[in-house]
Nucleic acid binder design. Structure first.
Length: 574
DNA sequence: GCCGTTTTCGGCCCGACTGTTTTCAGTCG
């Protein structure tokens, strides 16, 4: 059983407890436990098997540890079943509708007999909600609008899509005189792979002028609310944006607060509470005296912590690390010296070898690996042995004509169903760089898939496993494998794991990076560019690596060309 | 239900906005 499934059970218990109007702190406990389980870099099942004490984990006590045992044994827990018996099914779905929480969901069920989303919709359309005191016509409309957004998507967009919005919006905000400073906080600043909404903090000379300017932004579809502290709008593409106004002395506290994550904030507040202080979005206070607030650095310093990069703020050990001055020296875009995964017109790329090389050089790279597909990917006109040899000759010919860019002759070879490689190993051994990837048979059993990947890793001709889980965010689930075994094999054979920077891949994902690093594996960050503009995806890969606690020394393509040459010449395992 | 550098009992993160109130509950982030 996966951690996410266990977490879902705890969240459902919490939902049902909310509907039962149980003790709010008990509810919060279940939520925290769900959060801990969901964010864990390792599987609970494996931890239990190796005899680790679950109650050592944050927010997991004796009672929750017992429930985890029970869930792993039986697939569910008695507490959940008992609650489900007491409350009608469907009510938990109802309380996830925007505008509805546990109280209103229960109210609608008790007074109107509403138990499904469909019945809710009908009740709103018939104007029956206004029969209930405390609800009115406005609420009916708001619920209907919320229902409309539920159906359309998961409600979260890819980080890249949000980044495009931020770029346009940022240009607009920067061009306005009444706005002195603006920063995007939230999951966008933490570089989460998807973003639910945008939180934009504003320092304004004149708030009402700034508000007027914001409301004139052409991308706005609906104004959801506006007050003196906050303006909430919806942009096209159903992206919600909160603009919040802050004075300079509170700006750092606001940035900290709205960057989150929620669990990071709660963990910080626990520290604050011990000192009898108060931390909110306006500052750190002792009584009414402000101790800090203008910058994040001073806030963390007051708490005895190093500044924590936003990507680490997930309550996965970063606060402890900051207290011991052990925050890693996270990798940055400027550390990257080249790109080790790209395609050309030879297969499914859009541009020629020369064009790709020029673009890489224009970015200041020292090297680019050209890694077109192998023949199994027939839709991409994948290369067979003879076409690959010819392609490699062309790459080397162009390479010899260039002084300041090393073009590595490479390939992205398919890992076949049984773990063999799609091209003759003698031909692969001639190349400078071999990426091996799974592009088919995604639904094999965990045992078979593990064997498949490990066999490829053990081939002796592979330098790197491309997009290891082969998931597509929101569209295709990751393949199932015993990742600890895969990572261990990578370490043994000196095979790197790719962090694929394509916005809908971001694979290996962040918590697996952390886990693979602990297992001693190395990494590369690549764009898998199929066209010139894809080379610009590198920052998204960097974001994942930073969220995975990676430092420059963990990532092969931080090496300058000369050093990379030396490493690649060394025997495997180095 | 979790947690402990004043605690094994008694706390537990904090504020804004909306709608329908006429002092606040519910929801949201």
């Amino acid at each position: 059983m996966e951690n996410a499934q266990i977490a879902d059970i705890f969240d459902e218990v919490a939902d049902l407890l909310e509907l039962s109007e149980a003790d709010q702190f008990r509810i919060r406990s279940y939520r925290s436990a769900a959060q801990t389980v969901r964010g864990l870099p390792r599987r609970m099942e494996d931890m239990v098997r190796s005899g680790e004490r679950l109650s050592d984990l944050p927010h997991i006590g004796k009672s929750t540890a017992e429930k985890i045992d029970e869930i792993l044994r039986t697939g569910t827990c008695a507490r959940l079943k008992e609650l489900q018996k007491k409350l009608p099914a469907g009510l938990t779905a109802l309380m996830k509708v925007p505008q509805l929480g546990p109280r209103r969901a229960k109210l609608l069920y008790d007074k109107l007999g509403v138990r499904t989303i469909e019945e809710l919709k009908a009740a709103c359309e018939q104007g029956r909600l206004r029969e209930i005191p405390s609800l009115g016509a406005k609420t009916e409309q708001n619920i209907l609008r919320g229902l409309a957004t539920i159906g359309t998507s998961s409600g979260r967009m890819l980080l890249k899509a949000a980044a495009d919005h931020v770029e346009a919006l940022g240009r607009y905000l920067s061009g306005n005189k009444s706005i002195k400073r603006w920063e995007v906080a939230g999951s966008f600043r933490r570089r989460s792979e998807t973003v639910g909404d945008l939180d934009i903090l504003i320092e304004a000379g004149d708030r009402s002028a700034a508000t007027e300017a914001i409301l004139k932004y052409p991308g706005i579809e609906t104004v959801l609310s506006r007050g003196p502290e906050r303006v909430t709008v919806q942009l096209g593409g159903a992206l919600q944006v909160d603009f919040r106004f802050f004075e300079p002395e509170a700006f750092g506290a606001a940035l900290l607060y709205f960057t989150g994550s929620k669990s990071h904030n709660i963990a910080l507040r626990r520290l604050v509470q011990k000192r009898k202080w108060k931390l909110n979005e306006y500052g750190l206070f002792s009584g009414r005296r402000r101790l800090a607030g203008a910058s994040e650095e001073e806030l963390y310093r007051k708490l005895g912590l190093e500044w924590i990069p936003p990507e680490l703020r997930e309550d996965r050990g970063e606060i402890d690390a900051a207290a011991h001055k052990a925050i890693p020296d996270l990798i940055e875009l400027k550390d990257i010296c080249g790109d080790l995964h790209s395609h050309t017109k030879a297969t499914d790329g859009a541009h020629s070898l020369q064009e790709m090389a020029d673009a890489a050089r224009a970015r200041g790279y020292e090297y680019l690996a050209v890694t077109d597909h192998s023949k199994a990917v027939s839709v991409a006109k994948g290369l067979d042995e003879s076409r690959l040899k010819k392609h490699a000759r062309e790459i080397r010919k162009l390479n010899s004509s260039m002084k300041d860019l090393w073009l590595l002759a490479g390939v992205e070879v398919d890992i076949l169903k049984d773990g063999r490689l799609d091209l003759d190993e003698d031909v692969l051994a001639e190349l400078d760089w071999v990426v091996a990837s799974v592009h088919s048979h995604f639904d094999m059993s965990k045992t078979e898939m593990t064997r498949r990947l490990v066999r490829a890793i053990e081939s002796g001709v592979v330098h790197c496993i491309g997009h290891a889980s082969s998931r597509l965010i929101g569209r295709r689930s990751p393949i199932d494998a015993d990742w600890d075994e895969v990572f261990a094999a990578c370490r043994r054979h000196g095979v790197r794991l790719e962090i694929n920077a394509q916005p809908d891949r971001l694979d290996l994902r962040d918590n697996y990076c952390q886990r693979a690093k602990e297992a001693g594996a190395g990494f590369v960050i690549s764009t898998d560019a199929h066209k010139l503009s894809d080379l610009e995806f590198m920052p998204f890969g960097i974001g994942v690596a930073r969220r995975g606690w990676l430092e420059p020394r963990d990532v092969l393509n931080t090496l300058p060309a000369a050093e990379l040459r030396r490493v690649l010449k060394a025997p495997a395992g180095r």
